[in-house]
Design a protein around this nucleic acid. Structure first.
Lengths: 395, 395
DNA sequence: GTGATACGTTGCAGAACGCTACAAATCGAC
DNA sequence: GTCGATTTGTAGCGTTCTGCAACGTATCAC
């Protein structure tokens, strides 16, 4: 319950303009006036301030075949970037992501075994140190976002529990901040995936969506509720993988029986296909190509269980869109009709009627974009909060 | 993505102050300055405007045993009220609810059979006409809120489907607006219950909660996510009753198998108790008094199924609080430990660790307060939007 | 009573936005 | 190619709202 003063108005309006060009791409000043409802002169002043702070660039208008004076195009500065870090079982991936959502660079640093927290921090810090010359010469770095495959406490980036990495109560953000000097934020990978798909992928402009991702180690998810990412009270929200879908005794990674993650697994799909390993695209191709009845039965079994979990979430959240990533997208691709009708049979007509099932669009850049978005969040909320023209951000 | 101007600042600050005295009760001006962060002089101006508009009242400070000049107490005007309407299977209830949350009057108009929409509208309009003398003399009515046991489309109050009333696609809000002349908003009863409990009941000050209500005709619910009521894309969110909790063939009111509403019913509790009918309090007393093993077995069965649904919701939403109303509160009262441990066994430790299970507090006034809150919403969002000093609101 | 403290009140200054008038750039018609 | 219509940028002014500082006032402690 905070009152707002004039400073807040300015901050808010700068934030609105920067968010627009960040999320919707380049826009003319006249478009900005229409969308924001602000006056021409106000938009001019706001854009001028953002230009001065090096956050956006104005460029010559392209010919639009429209009457009237052409309006300058406002686009995000290519110099403003965030660093994205994603520790996994077999690698740590580090990326440089522009404020326009472009992934400038991505480095995957493979590890022999699942990295410990100090190892992951050391790898990330070393790679970032290697990039530092380039970063300081060409870019302004706003901070680091980390996508963690596990539960992360929102306010301080403490990793409560990352089962596949074996991390428990690790102050990851704090350590990486100390090692690099950049401000660090961390969050659950699937929540960040939901945010990325929402802004830059299948969910553009949508206010209520559910995102489920199927990976080698399980199923995670995230949601956007009423236009805002829903993190829950401590940032643990979105664990769709542990939803109960059957009375069976199969146990998931958290030891819970009959859950989505226990019934719907990538491993079993690979087994019936006779594949040793495959990425998401290869798995989808193999499933589509297969004519085996055994494969088909397994696919159907998994689709039916997935449908129960989706229907439950749809009944509760009444979303506009369900985005499926990883091998769950493959299940959708193989038999969308079966999935749709199975979901329909478990959900309320009214809630199901307006929902669309869709595959994720961002592919391998998903987590880079999501993690960077986390780091950009502070800048987008308060574009004037950081010192103008600073090359790097110090604590 | 809207910009804000000076008008918005004023509107926002008026809204913040009015919301504070509405939700947290009377407060001194100095308290308001502290909570809002606004300047003394600004608060003085805001309160003065709210007084002039007849929305709040300033009164002499009570002796607080504190040094310094006493600060006037700001409280909500007792004249500002909303009308609450709640159609049910066997009655239509109409209430007058003050902006302070006080229920001034409640009229339950019993019906022989489940009322049709025109009947419900006629009853409500007739009762309100009967009150009109009192309303126009003593009160300023901001509008009518309707709590409907069914799916309601948010933006226009169309009742999509109210199974127990047998209503399908009924323009309830429109009809009641035409019949009474007051602006009408409608929403799902359980969603409104969630809102009421959040602001005036067990969930005061909590930003993430789930509310489940067990009634004679089924189980409904609502949620607050990140401080805001979550309605979904069309206002249908919160249908926890249709979450799958078992593989059984029991069917719920929507024809879906193995759901919470199919397994956990008030009817079966009454049956094992040998009771013909009972309100929520009587049922709870009877359950607590019973020593029958059969009763106990049925309670345990229902608790275990309830736990599955709660755990699923907790994993997905990571709330701070779960509020149980109706006969679900009775199950909690009978064996809170069993419910807690059953929920724990189906949920993630991290998400379950911070959650509290609690019984609803508002009892029979719940829906009156929730429906009124819906009607107050517009006023709270824009206290200056309505003409100052108007006795009633015309379209 | 006197001082300290906290708060209301008043007048003024600053910040931000909208408005209006004017200038500039484009398209289409002749 | 020129002219008018249209759209938008630009500059200056006015309005609105909040913050600040100074002063007045009411209470408590001694």
């Amino acid at each position: 319950m905070q009152g707002s003063s004039h400073d807040d108005v300015r901050r808010h309006n700068l934030s609105v303009v920067l968010r627009l060009v960040h999320r919707s791409g380049a826009a003319s000043r006249s478009q900005l006036t229409r969308v924001t409802g602000l006056n021409r002169s106000t938009i001019a002043a706001l854009v001028a301030e953002l230009v001065e702070r090096g956050l956006v660039v104005e460029s010559e208008p392209s010919s639009t075949n429209q009457v009237g004076r052409p309006s300058p195009i406002v686009s995000v500065s290519e110099q403003v970037v965030a660093l994205a870090v994603n520790p996994e079982i077999d690698a740590v991936t580090i990326g440089i992501v522009g404020l326009d959502g472009q992934v400038h660079r991505r480095v995957r640093y493979p590890t022999d075994q699942s990295p410990s927290v100090p190892e992951a921090v050391n790898i990330a810090a070393a790679v970032i140190d290697g990039m530092r010359g380039e970063l300081e010469a060409r870019f302004k770095v706003v901070g680091i976002g980390v996508a963690v495959p596990g539960l992360v406490r929102a306010h301080d980036g403490l990793v409560r529990h990352a089962p596949h990495l074996g991390w428990i109560d690790e102050p990851l953000a704090e350590m990486l901040e100390a090692a690099t000097g950049y401000p660090v934020l961390a969050a659950n990978d699937a929540s960040l995936g939901a945010m990325a798909e929402r802004f830059f992928g299948a969910g553009k402009g949508i206010t209520d969506l559910i995102y489920l991702n199927g990976g080698a180690s399980g199923i995670g998810g995230g949601m956007i509720v009423g236009g805002a990412p829903a993190g829950g009270i401590a940032g643990y929200a979105g664990e769709f993988g542990h939803t109960r879908v059957s009375d069976s005794d199969r146990v998931d990674s958290a030891g819970i029986r009959g859950t989505l993650e226990a019934e719907v697994t990538r491993r079993e799909l690979l087994e019936v296909l006779g594949l040793a390993g495959a990425d998401a695209d290869e798995l989808e191709q193999a499933l589509l190509a297969s004519t085996s009845a055994v494969v088909r039965a397994e696919v159907n079994r998994q689709i039916d269980h997935l449908a129960v979990a989706l229907a439950g979430a749809i009944n509760i959240l009444n979303p506009q869109l369900v985005v499926l990533g990883g091998f769950l997208a493959a299940l959708l691709a193989v038999d969308a009709d079966r999935l749709r009708s199975a979901v329909a049979s478990h959900s309320l007509d009214a809630a199901f009627g307006s929902v669309r099932l869709s595959a994720a669009e961002l592919g391998s850049n998903l987590l880079m974009i999501g993690a960077a978005e986390l780091a950009f969040e502070g800048l987008l909320d308060d574009p004037a909060g950081l010192p103008a023209g600073a090359g790097t951000i110090s604590a």
